[in-house]
Design a protein around this nucleic acid. Sequence first.
DNA 1: CCGGGACATGAACGATCGTTTAAAACGATC
DNA 2: GATCGTTTTAAACGATCGTTCATGTCCCGG
Lengths: 221, 221
Amino acid sequence: MSRVPQETRARLLDAAVELFAEQGFHGTSVRDIALRADVNVASANYHFGSKEDLYLEVLRSQFAAIRARLSERRAKVPVEEIAGLDRDELVALLRSRITAMLELFVGHPPSRHARLMLREMLDPSAALPVAVDEFMRPEIEQSKAILSRLEPDIDDETLEQCLFSMMGPVIYVTLARPALLLMSGREEYPADFAEQVGRRMTEFSLGGLARIARIARGEDA
Amino acid sequence: MSRVPQETRARLLDAAVELFAEQGFHGTSVRDIALRADVNVASANYHFGSKEDLYLEVLRSQFAAIRARLSERRAKVPVEEIAGLDRDELVALLRSRITAMLELFVGHPPSRHARLMLREMLDPSAALPVAVDEFMRPEIEQSKAILSRLEPDIDDETLEQCLFSMMGPVIYVTLARPALLLMSGREEYPADFAEQVGRRMTEFSLGGLARIARIARGEDA
DNA sequence: CCGGGACATGAACGATCGTTTAAAACGATC
DNA sequence: GATCGTTTTAAACGATCGTTCATGTCCCGG
C-alpha cells in the first residue's frame, strides 16, 4: 500500500520533530517515531539512511522554519533601510523583534523550534553550523544594525557583548520556564507574558545601551 | 577485594557527574559510568538502586556544590546587611555576583555544574524542586534584595522581570558557548572573559534598572 | 576461630536499541 | 497486462541497554 508520494517521509519528519524536540536524540527511539507517524519502522532508515541523518534533517528543516516564523510575526525592515529610521521607529522595531521572539519561544504549547534550538546549543551536532548561519548570525547582524544606529558611539565588540544582554533574557525565560513556574507557583506564564515582558526587556535594554554609550563617550565613571 | 569504605560509591558518583554532565541521562550508560569509575557494573545498582536514582543523587550533590562554589568566589554579604550598604558597595556586590557566576559557568573546562543545571532546566526531573530551592530561589532572593535597595521605586513583580535581564545573559553565554565561538571563529572565550563581560553586563544592568525605575516614577515616556 | 553483614564480582537475564534483509505491493510506462 | 523502479512491510539481526543473581571476598565482633 503506497500513499501520496513522499507522504511517509513527511509524516516521519513531523513525528521526529515533535519527539526529538520533546525528548532529545537519545531519549527518542526510531520505533517511537515510526509509531507516532503510523508507518513501518524500516521506513525511517529507507527515507533518511539512519537515525542520525533523520535528526540532522529535522534540525535543518526547523532552523529554516524559525526565521520564517519570526519574519511573519514582527515588523519587517530590510537591513539597508535601518539607516533611514528615526529613534522612535528604531525602538519600535527593537520591541517588535524581542516580542516576536518571546511569542514564538514561550507560546502555548512550548515551541518545538525553541526546544530543538536549545538542545542543539547544549549538545551541538553536525547541524550547529546550519543553526548559526541560518538563524543566529542573521538575527545578530540585524540586531547589531539597529543597535549601532541607536547608539553610534559604541564600538563593535562592545555592541556584541550588549547583545548578550538582549538575547540572553529571551533564551533564559524559554529554557528556565519549568523552574520559574515552579518557583512562582503558577501553572503557566500569563497570556500577555510576551507582550508585557517584551516591553520590559526592551526598556531595560534601552537603558542598558544608553549607559554603555555614556561610558563609551567617557561621560560616566 | 574491598576498598576503603564508600570509596566505590564515591568513585561512581564522580564518574556519573562527569558523564551525565557531558552526555546527559539518556546518552550515558551505566556501563560507561562503571568503566570510568573502574568498578563493577553491578556496583551502581547496589549503591544507588537504579540508574535514575544515581542521576538524582548526582543532581542533588551538584546543586548543593554550586552554591558553595559561588560563595567561595564572590563577596559575601548576609541578606540582612544589604540594607546598610551604600550605592557603591551595592554596585560592587552586584558585579561580584555576576562575575562569580560567569567564572563558575564559563571557566575552562566547561563547568559540569552548569551543564547539569542546564540539562535539568531543559528536561526537568524529580530533582527540579531541589534545584529551585537549593540554588535558584536563594540566588534570586539575594539579587532582589540588592536590586530593591538600588532602586526602591520598582515594585516586586517588575523587579523579578528585571532579574530575567540580569540572569539571562549569564545563562546565555554559558549555553550558547559553542555557537558563539563558532560564530566568532574563536577556539575559546578569552581568559578575561568573565571579568570583562561581567563588568559590561553589570553596567548594562545598572542602566536598564535605572530606566525601569524612571518609568516607574513616571519620569519617562 | 568462627559467623555474619557489607561489598565486589562475573555472568546472565529479558527488553529494547538501530539497522538489515528479502519479499510483497505499488504506480508509472510501454 | 507485463515490466520496472519505488516504496512498504514483517521479521530478524547483533549489539547494547538496565538490572538481577549467585558466588566470592573481605572485615569485624564474638
